[in-house]
Design a protein around this nucleic acid. Structure first.
Lengths: 228, 228
DNA sequence: GGCAATAGTTTGTGATCAAATTATCTATGC
DNA sequence: GCATAGATAATTTGATCACAAACTATTGCC
């Protein structure tokens, strides 16, 4: 058990509430595979884990439930969602719909500096892939996609997409934890080429391939009967 | 096969927690125009208003903030969002993207009984339009759309769309409160015709017209300089 | 008379506590 | 040996309180 201590930053004058810090930490852990799908969490357990009282955890958890990052069952217990194949397919098509749209919108606003930034992120992803750093890869992948999407300047759509990402986050870790990062093809290279040449059709194809790779892996893992 | 199962199927006598009831009431008020855009709400105020303590309100409000139905400012105060024209346009295009997709998916599963149910809802909408019952119209409109979308069986997309509706709910009331329901054309008639004839193209056109009418009204109202 | 400092009020935040609910463990009967 | 019922432990839920930040209105000063 890792006990993390939350302390207010002494240098920053902006006081960020504890429930906000708890929210960020929990969302990060969910997004990047800190929890296993289907596992139950308790308020007191999380509170002890994070070194805070139960109250801020309550608010953060309530928020994460609303964002589909956590699931509240009829028993009043909170779970990491264990998605069915059907739901995975729904997320898959929703991602295709929304993220392609976001990427195309972003392409219009994208500067050369932005492309360079994306390339930098992608190089860090390559390093993570080589060293087998699963969490590093997941963080890099998230950063790559949302850096691109942020250039669309469409905060509304971005929030919806983030809503999807927190749902399959725990599964991504499962997939990579099982099959490793070795046989992962970096689909971002083609996306970068499409961005450089301002090719909408190629960008759409690259993104759909990238999404299909990720969600396809998840779908295969779901169908396996064995559990960890 | 003996008596009752202990742990799983005890949903019959489901006791609904107070924070859940508060959430539903507040969401309804937001969806159907019970609050004005830009207005601040207070936890104690809402608690007194609903006749409950502050704690359940805190949880419900935190949840609504996560769903973009309420807005948490840096002052830590909670507001009904006052959307800019830019955000309205983002919601507009997001609605077009998602709701057309949902309607087309629903069309595949739609039975004749479903179409009859939609027609019944639409007749109630007509009554509301004639009597100038703004809230009745808004509830009927919501019911019509989400009955249709529910037949898509895509819970994930539906949640995303509901996330959009709570955002423009307060503005709809502003629009209809200002211009009345008299000059509202019922766009659902064309949608119903398209559903009956299973015409995808016509359905898309009808839905886009319906969405454009609503969001167009909002956009016009936004641009007006006067405030209530 | 206008502006800034200040006191009083309001409000969100976090902690603590009691009651209700659910899960887990244990013992008992068949 | 297995299932069921009761007892115990763990957890959520809702209420209350203390505190700090923010807002309002007043007062005092130039």
């Amino acid at each position: 058990m890792t006990k993390t201590t939350l302390h207010s930053a002494s240098t920053s004058d902006a006081v960020v509430p504890v429930h906000e810090q708890v929210y960020q930490q929990l969302r990060d852990r969910i997004l990047f595979g800190g929890f296993l799908p289907g596992k139950a969490v308790t308020l007191r357990g999380l509170a002890d884990d994070l070194g805070v009282s139960a109250m801020p955890v309550r608010e953060a958890v309530r928020r994460l439930i609303a964002e589909n990052a956590l699931e509240l069952h009829g028993n009043r217990r909170v779970f990491i969602p264990d998605l069915s194949e059907k739901v995975i397919n729904e997320i898959w098509s929703a991602r295709r719909l929304l993220e392609v749209e976001l990427a195309l919108m972003a392409l219009k606003n994208l500067s050369d500096d932005d492309i360079q930034s994306l390339q930098d992120i992608d190089e860090r992803i390559d390093v993570s892939l080589e060293t087998g750093d699963v969490e590093g890869y997941m963080r890099g992948n998230y950063e790559f996609h949302f850096y691109l999407y942020s250039q669309s300047k469409s905060e509304v759509l971005i929030k919806l997409v983030r809503n999807l990402w927190v749902q399959f986050g725990p599964f991504m870790r499962l997939v990579y934890g099982r099959s490793g990062t070795a046989n992962l093809e970096d689909q971002h290279k083609q996306a970068l080429e499409a961005l450089k040449s301002r090719d909408q059709r190629a960008l759409r194809a690259a993104l759909e391939a990238d999404i299909s790779q990720g969600m396809g892996f998840i779908q295969e893992t779901i169908c396996l009967p064995d559990k960890v």
